[in-house]
């Protein structure tokens, strides 16, 4: 009898583990259920659905952006009313909150729309992220009416998505002082880095779909600097990337890891465990080193706390 109980406990535990590790399966029907069928006087047309392979059929080469954030599926629903500009909802299941947040940070221009877990609105386009979903609601022509309906659609979809997601852990290593919280980007690969901040025409930081990276702006428009953090799979990969970057970007100062660049500002790099941290366009050598110290201190402090736990 005792043995049976033990078996049952083991089975229950295994079952629990299976449930805990069950992969998220993208579900078109579930995704579509978040979008209302009508909005104001508009009615919706038949949904279009795409995955990472077929997305090019819908949005051409722009699909590469969503693929670079590991998109899983997309449901596109067009709302139509005769004589009015169409409104299009594109709802992406990105597979993880980190990538939903990341793809949202790809375009941060616009005013905060206070929808979802982060949003902006500009020129008829409302974008936001929530849980593992990224959403775009777009009016083909911005009018007072379409703007109101775009916001209403956004709020209704926000309300229909039940969960919330965590932002990438890497963001917690950004020093708060001077950080422009509206200019923090999360991404994985070299092309997206260069989209936001051209570093080099080749992949000198050895970025790929497995690397997580954050690019953050500091200071004001007249005194803008950047912090780039990349998390690699292990310390060896980070060390290799750090050397690659230093040799290509600061060949005259690769050993020292800090250099005054052609614009009179300072760039510095440091490898810390499985991370590479780079600061760009710092006004002085001293402040560049201090910013690196601040990032590393946050990383190590966090690592220490995790070890204690």
């Amino acid at each position: 009898m005792k043995r049976v109980v033990v078996y049952a406990a083991v089975l229950a535990l295994l079952g629990g583990l299976v449930l805990m590790t069950e992969p998220i399966v993208p579900d078109f029907q579930k995704l579509a259920s978040f979008i209302p069928p009508t909005i104001g006087p508009y009615v919706s047309e038949a949904d279009q659905t795409f995955d990472a392979e077929t997305i090019f059929d819908y949005i051409d080469g722009a699909g590469e952006v969503y693929r670079s954030y590991n998109m899983k599926i997309l449901v596109a629903r067009r709302f139509h009313k005769d004589g009015k500009p169409d409104i299009v909802v594109d709802l992406f299941d990105m597979g993880s909150p980190e990538d939903a947040f990341g793809v949202f940070t790809h375009d941060l221009d616009g005013e905060d729309a206070e929808v979802g877990q982060g949003s902006n609105y500009k020129a008829g386009l409302l974008s936001f992220w929530k849980d593992r979903y990224f959403l775009s609601v777009y009016a083909e022509e911005e009018t007072a009416e379409t703007k109101g309906l775009v916001f209403e659609l956004g709020r209704r979809i926000d309300g229909a998505i039940p969960g919330r997601g965590e932002t990438p852990d890497l963001l917690r290593h950004l020093p708060a002082e001077g950080l422009d919280t509206g200019r923090v980007r999360f991404f994985h690969n070299h092309s997206v880095l260069n989209y936001h901040f051209f570093v080099a025409d080749t992949n000198i930081l050895l970025l790929d779909q497995k690397t997580d990276a954050v690019l953050a702006d500091y200071g004001s428009k007249d005194d803008r600097s950047k912090v780039l953090m990349v998390a690699y799979e292990d310390g060896g990969s980070a060390a290799k990337a750090g050397v690659s970057f230093a040799r290509a970007y600061m060949p005259e100062a690769a050993e020292k890891g800090i250099v005054k660049t052609e614009n009179g500002k300072w760039t510095a790099v440091r490898v810390n465990d499985r991370y590479v941290v780079i600061v760009f366009d710092m006004i002085a050598e001293r402040t560049a080193a201090a910013r690196l110290d601040a990032v590393v201190a946050l990383m190590n402090g966090r690592a220490d706390r995790m070890q204690e736990e």
Partner: peptide, 11 residues
């Protein structure tokens, strides 16, 4: 351009 469709009439 803006958004997934990289279009806004404004631009």
């Amino acid at each position: 351009g803006v958004g997934p469709h990289h279009y806004a009439k404004e631009y």
